[in-house]
Design a protein around this nucleic acid. Sequence first.
DNA 1: TACAATAAACTAGACTGAATAGTCTGTTAA
DNA 2: TTAACAGACTATTCAGTCTAGTTTATTGTA
Lengths: 222, 222
Amino acid sequence: MTSNAVRNLMPEGTERQGRGRPRDREKNSAIIETASELFLENGFAGTSMDAVAKHAGVSKQTVYSHFSSKEQLFSESVRRRIGEHFPDETEDDDADHSLEADTVEICNQFAQLLVSDDAMSVYRVLVAEAPKGSELAKIFWEAGPRLMVEKLVHFLARWVEAGELEIDDLEAAAKHLLALLKGELHFQLAIGLVDTVDEAAVRAHAEECAIGFLMVYRKQPA
Amino acid sequence: MTSNAVRNLMPEGTERQGRGRPRDREKNSAIIETASELFLENGFAGTSMDAVAKHAGVSKQTVYSHFSSKEQLFSESVRRRIGEHFPDETEDDDADHSLEADTVEICNQFAQLLVSDDAMSVYRVLVAEAPKGSELAKIFWEAGPRLMVEKLVHFLARWVEAGELEIDDLEAAAKHLLALLKGELHFQLAIGLVDTVDEAAVRAHAEECAIGFLMVYRKQPA
DNA sequence: TACAATAAACTAGACTGAATAGTCTGTTAA
DNA sequence: TTAACAGACTATTCAGTCTAGTTTATTGTA
């Protein structure tokens, strides 16, 4: 928290080239990338600034010249990880086959994402840091669960319009489906009761959820 | 990890009274109780042995004479908390009214338990310590979720026998219901996005889940 | 029953050693 | 000539140990 607190954060394009030697972008990347790996693997307390510097192949002072504190580095790192990894894993949903096939497909995509190593790592770190009440929780929520709900709502709306589904509260239905998809596996992974995800098993679970979901919301032919 | 590692753990009845002054049971309780509070509030890393000793009104050496290491104290503390708090919050389920009323009731009880301060604290601590891979995760699982599933299965089985529900896989149904009950609130609490639970809101959510569940599994009069 | 002798738990606090967040000092690149 | 850089340095926190003196029990003996 010294005088250099002001000029941190390297926000991509907005680089006002000052007088002296410019900051090394590659080192900045190396630091933030290393940091995010270490933070997600070992948590905030379990990651030392020395370790970050060492693994990034950079001196500690350099780390502090790019990021004013451990907190800030943590925040930036996790924020970037969140932004990078969640956005559009589900791009290929333009080819619509049948309601069933599509539902199973989107369920599987979401289920795999929910229990992916990255998502679980971020989740674990955020849970551990929850007492601190950082703003990361909100960022994660918006970029993760919130976004998934929206996509799901969008998906469901299409089939409602097509007259194949009958749903009055789209958002509630989407949230229920997501809750089902998490199932017990997410919980078990979170507390470390299991640490491997069997992709096929997740797929099977997703299918089960999809079928169940459709049984409830599929429009009955009168 | 010195010579005193052998004779730790005060396992209730099995107290072989040695020669000298016996360990003070009250101090043992004070330590473990204080420790569990601090650990659940501030996490493992956030709790120092000095703090435990101070808050328990006991010298540090005494702490180490009762528990050989911080890890052991942590383990014992959380283990006790788990054992104390989950067992039979749901005792009054002998008065059976109607399927609907009973289902709503048990859903509400479980939903309130799932998001209770205690359950969330234990969950958060376990998630934070998940990388260490302690055996606590298993204990928690058995005493918490596992037990809830069993109780729910038992509950459902009664109504299946009574011919009011139609379920082929009781356990799967129970797990689905639990997943629904957690909903998004559990997640939000875990990452600290929200920190207060509105009991009435939880109840409303539980009712919604119960109704939805019954819509799926209630036996249709042919 | 009374009374040492003894052994171990207790207190208070100093201490060790390790880890670690953050800073200072001088050097070098742009 | 400015600011990034490397690495030594500082200060703090903390798990666990040690010491020295005190208290409370058991046990052997009178």
